[in-house]
Simulated assay, not measured.
Amino acid sequence: MGPKTEELICVLDQLAAMLESDGDTHWSLWVRKARARLLDSDYSGITYLLSAYGGMSSFNDLILGQSYDGGAFSWKPGHVELNKRFDKLRNDAAQLAGAIKRSQD
């Protein structure tokens, strides 16, 4: 396993934890599945992860820190900082996966 893959696995760990702490199950499972494949040295983890980006309702569109309680939408405290950190990790994951994919093509 190369250093970029190791770095990507670390980023995916952080993403999964962040998603789970915000109550997300769909994308946290997606990230964990990609991570598991990479840990097994399965290159399909890269293509699987990258398939989450782009299109309507994709990983790119996800915003954390929202809640809907009793018919009212609200933001959780710290949502701006949460989403800044989330955006950075999400972008880091895409860039690392893209670099790994280019090195394999």
Score class of each variant (00 low, 15 high):
residue 2 G to D: 15
residue 2 G to H: 08
residue 3 P to S: 03
residue 3 P to N: 12
residue 3 P to Q: 03
residue 3 P to A: 04
residue 4 K to P: 00
residue 4 K to G: 01
residue 5 T to W: 10
residue 6 E to D: 14
residue 7 E to W: 08
residue 9 I to H: 04
residue 9 I to F: 05
residue 10 C to R: 14
residue 11 V to Q: 08
residue 11 V to C: 02
residue 12 L to C: 01
residue 13 D to H: 11
residue 13 D to C: 07
residue 13 D to R: 13
residue 13 D to P: 07
residue 14 Q to G: 02
residue 14 Q to R: 01
residue 16 A to Q: 03
residue 16 A to N: 01
residue 17 A to S: 11
residue 17 A to I: 03
residue 18 M to T: 15
residue 18 M to N: 06
residue 19 L to D: 11
residue 19 L to Y: 09
residue 19 L to T: 08
residue 20 E to G: 14
residue 20 E to Y: 15
residue 21 S to T: 03
residue 21 S to R: 12
residue 21 S to A: 09
residue 22 D to Y: 11
residue 22 D to V: 05
residue 23 G to K: 09
residue 23 G to L: 06
residue 24 D to A: 07
residue 24 D to P: 00
residue 25 T to W: 12
residue 26 H to E: 07
residue 27 W to R: 01
residue 27 W to Q: 01
residue 28 S to K: 07
residue 28 S to C: 14
residue 28 S to V: 09
residue 29 L to V: 13
residue 29 L to A: 04
residue 29 L to T: 14
residue 30 W to T: 15
residue 31 V to H: 03
residue 31 V to M: 04
residue 34 A to R: 10
residue 34 A to S: 14
residue 36 A to Q: 09
residue 37 R to I: 07
residue 37 R to C: 14
residue 38 L to C: 04
residue 38 L to G: 06
residue 39 L to F: 09
residue 40 D to F: 04
residue 41 S to I: 12
residue 42 D to R: 03
residue 42 D to I: 12
residue 42 D to M: 08
residue 43 Y to H: 12
residue 44 S to N: 05
residue 44 S to E: 15
residue 45 G to E: 02
residue 46 I to F: 01
residue 48 Y to Q: 11
residue 48 Y to C: 08
residue 49 L to V: 03
residue 50 L to I: 10
residue 51 S to N: 00
residue 51 S to W: 04
residue 52 A to E: 00
residue 53 Y to P: 12
residue 53 Y to S: 11
residue 54 G to Y: 02
residue 55 G to C: 02
residue 58 S to F: 11
residue 58 S to P: 14
residue 58 S to K: 08
residue 59 F to D: 02
residue 61 D to R: 09
residue 62 L to M: 07
residue 63 I to P: 07
residue 65 G to I: 15
residue 65 G to S: 00
residue 65 G to V: 08
residue 65 G to P: 01
residue 68 Y to I: 05
residue 69 D to K: 07
residue 69 D to R: 10
residue 70 G to C: 03
residue 71 G to F: 10
residue 71 G to H: 03
residue 71 G to P: 01
residue 72 A to Q: 10
residue 72 A to V: 14
residue 72 A to E: 10
residue 72 A to L: 07
residue 75 W to S: 07
residue 75 W to F: 13
residue 76 K to N: 11
residue 76 K to A: 13
residue 76 K to C: 15
residue 78 G to T: 06
residue 79 H to E: 10
residue 79 H to K: 13
residue 80 V to I: 08
residue 80 V to G: 08
residue 80 V to Y: 12
residue 81 E to M: 05
residue 82 L to F: 07
residue 83 N to K: 02
residue 83 N to E: 09
residue 83 N to F: 11
residue 84 K to W: 03
residue 85 R to F: 02
residue 85 R to W: 04
residue 85 R to G: 10
residue 85 R to C: 09
residue 85 R to Y: 13
residue 86 F to W: 15
residue 87 D to L: 04
residue 89 L to Y: 14
residue 91 N to S: 05
residue 91 N to W: 01
residue 91 N to C: 13
residue 92 D to M: 10
residue 92 D to H: 01
residue 93 A to P: 11
residue 95 Q to N: 12
residue 96 L to V: 06
residue 96 L to G: 01
residue 97 A to E: 00
residue 97 A to G: 13
residue 97 A to W: 02
residue 98 G to Y: 03
residue 98 G to I: 02
residue 99 A to P: 09
residue 100 I to F: 00
residue 101 K to Y: 15
residue 101 K to Q: 12
residue 102 R to G: 03
residue 102 R to L: 15
residue 102 R to S: 12
residue 103 S to G: 05
residue 104 Q to G: 01
residue 104 Q to E: 11
residue 104 Q to S: 13
residue 105 D to V: 14
residue 105 D to R: 15
